[in-house]
Write a protein that binds this DNA or RNA. Structure first.
Ligand code: SF4
Ligand code: SF4
Lengths: 135, 135
DNA sequence: GCTATTATAGACACACATTATCTATAATAG
DNA sequence: CTATTATAGATAATGTGTGTCTATAATAGC
């Protein structure tokens, strides 16, 4: 039950894009330079964020990535689900009792977990990060 | 970010052991009979529950598994952590900033998630399951 | 138009954890 | 002593995540 390494790359990138939002587009090579990840691999991850509508991409010279219009609304949940997809934590009971109490209980806890992540906005986190020594 | 199939086997088994607790020990072959899993593989999973102190095993004829003494206190969290271990959902920042706001936020949400699972007792779930058609 | 730059997509390989089987051993009841 | 049952080790199969390489498409600047 762990978040993938790709999600870490995505979150780190979102933080950088938010902190440098005023400077326009940023190329994947610059974004990858801040992390130990190849440009092509990070690009695949960022394409997921594009398709989820969290960031915008522009190909060609001086192109790159930038945040979407109302970027201040993007939450941790948005980024995590864009990368990880939407499968529930516990889903091994398809052909079994759908009213199973175990299933219901775990999904209830998961729902609260996701809702809490949905209240945490990247913009707020970035604002906090601006005030502490960072790498 | 999914719970393993093994955890499902473990939870299902705990439900059965709780519902048939008055009948003494139950062999792994009977427990496996209720699910699509081999006896040797389920045995490995149940050994984790034994080492975590959630159930008790007795080898030899008429042996098997039964719940521990104060079995009414066992929660979903106990079972999940016994099988899955204790690694945090998000732990890719060992050699980075330990005060990272992303890390802190996700771990805070995870903490609440685990605490909620820690309030859900298997005994209560079994009591509910007793009153509905089950397989 | 031409060229350099940059994102995107597909094929492919690699590493790793999960799942599962088989076999051997230890312990217990009768 | 024998049948039964849990435990442990070795090993294989499977699937997913991670990563690389190459080719293609789109854009800016000249
Ligand atoms: S009882 Fe619940 S957890 Fe067990 S197999 Fe049925 S649906 Fe799944
Ligand atoms: S900023 Fe936070 S999430 Fe990103 S690498 Fe550092 S510790 Fe990890």
């Amino acid at each position: 039950m762990k978040l993938s390494k790709s999600t870490h790359y995505a979150l780190h990138t979102m933080l950088h894009l938010t902190l440098s939002h005023a400077e326009g587009h940023t190329s994947v090579s610059k974004l990858a330079g801040h992390q130990q990840v190849s440009t092509t691999y990070l690009s695949k991850i960022l394409t997921k964020l594009v398709k989820a509508g969290l960031i915008v991409s522009v190909p060609g010279a001086n192109g790159g990535y930038k945040l979407k219009a109302n970027w201040k609304e993007t939450t941790l949940l948005d980024v995590i689900q864009a990368v990880e997809g939407l499968p529930p934590i516990f889903d091994y009971c398809e052909d079994h009792n759908p009213s199973c109490i175990i299933q219901q209980s775990i999904q209830k806890a998961e729902k609260n977990f996701l809702e809490e992540l949905g209240t945490m906005k990247i913009a707020d986190l970035a604002e906090d990060a601006r005030n502490v020594p960072h790498h």
